[in-house]
Amino acid sequence: MFVEVPAPVAAIAPPAARRAPLLARILRAAPPYLYLAPGLALLVIWTYRPLVQTAQLSFYSWNLLPTSPMVPAGTDNYEQLLGAPELGNAVWNTILVIAGLLPFTIVIPVVVALLTRQVGGPARELYRALIFAPMLVAPVASAAVWQWLLDPGSGAVNRLLGVNVNWLHETVPAQISIIGITGWHLLGFAVLLVSAGLAGISDDYSAAAQLDGASRWQITRWVTLPLLSPTLVFLALMTVLLGAQWTFPLIDTLTQGGPSGATTHIYYLLWDYGFHSHQAGLGAAAGVIFFTAFGVVALFLVWLADRISFHDD
């Protein structure tokens, strides 16, 4: 005699009933993604779509005129770019710019922030406003003022230093001028970041070190700076990846890449190919190569930052 065993509820439930719990889970999980959807859509439209178009354009020859057809060029743009002598010069100038900006974004901000960390009351707000003010000045406007200050005949810089230097039309002075003006712009922002990092360090560490007989320099060297390392690594990362971009408006306004290519870095070279020489395919190839190179550099720096940063847990 056989006994009939009832089938499981899930087996005999209609398909719509089985789909209901899955649909409910999807609806519960959807709100965060819906909030992110507008930002992700804009990121795709304004970042990833132009990046794909740039990669496609790098395999064509085109002079940017709507009436001219885009001619397939294969890998000719990449071969021409990698064989161009100005590429090596632009890469070297980029390295010089980054190395010259690091003192303005790390060394000087740390010194200034340490020396002024005891400033309090209304003087603190005045100090922050004064130190941050250059960051608010438009680069083109500041370039016009600096062009007057650096004038070889009647400029205030030559008079103050007692020299006769043509700052914007000599190779080394032009490089120094671009780096110095850009550093002047960025100094206040870096000082505020370092000050914020110092404010997040507990005074208990310094007090404990003082009880052990540590001097002020020893506390700074072995306590404060290691705890400040995440902020300093972030500033170094930003300088390496964006330093050359920060100098672009000043170069375009003051030197136009000269004299003799002394201030032409990779971003200005890319712009020159695309919008001055009207070689859109060559400019796109340069953009793809520079994007890939900086992507590799960014990955390495992020990996290195995880290894050398000291976090207060």
Rank of each mutant, 00 (worst) to 15 (best):
I176M: 13
G188D: 05
W222M: 10
A199F: 02
S177T: 12
T253M: 11
G180L: 11
G258R: 00
L250R: 00
I251T: 12
A196L: 08
I179P: 07
A196K: 05
A190C: 14
V157I: 15
I176G: 06
F234C: 06
L269K: 00
T253Q: 11
R221D: 13
P259M: 04
L149D: 04
V240R: 00
G197R: 00
H169S: 14
V157M: 07
F248C: 06
T220Q: 13
F248Q: 08
N164F: 03
I266N: 01
W271H: 15
G200M: 08
S195G: 13
L254R: 00
A174F: 01
D203K: 09
Y273R: 09
G261I: 08
Q245V: 14
S177K: 00
Q218M: 13
W148P: 03
Y273S: 07
F189L: 13
T247D: 08
Q147T: 03
T239Q: 03
T253F: 07
L242F: 13
A244D: 09
T231V: 14
L187E: 04
T247P: 07
T253L: 10
R216Y: 08
G183T: 03
P173G: 10
V165R: 00
G274Y: 00
N158H: 04
L150Y: 03
W146P: 05
S195L: 15
A209S: 15
M238A: 15
R221K: 15
Y268Q: 13
Q256Y: 10
V163Y: 06
P249V: 03
P226W: 02
L254G: 03
Q175E: 14
L235R: 02
I201S: 07
Q147G: 14
G243D: 05
F189A: 13
N166I: 01
F275W: 13
G155M: 01
I179Q: 04
S260D: 15
I219M: 11
G258H: 00
L211Q: 14
R159P: 05
S202Q: 12
A199H: 03
S202V: 11
N158I: 05
V233E: 01
D151E: 11
W271R: 12
G274F: 04
I266Y: 00
V240P: 00
E170S: 14
G162M: 10
L227I: 05
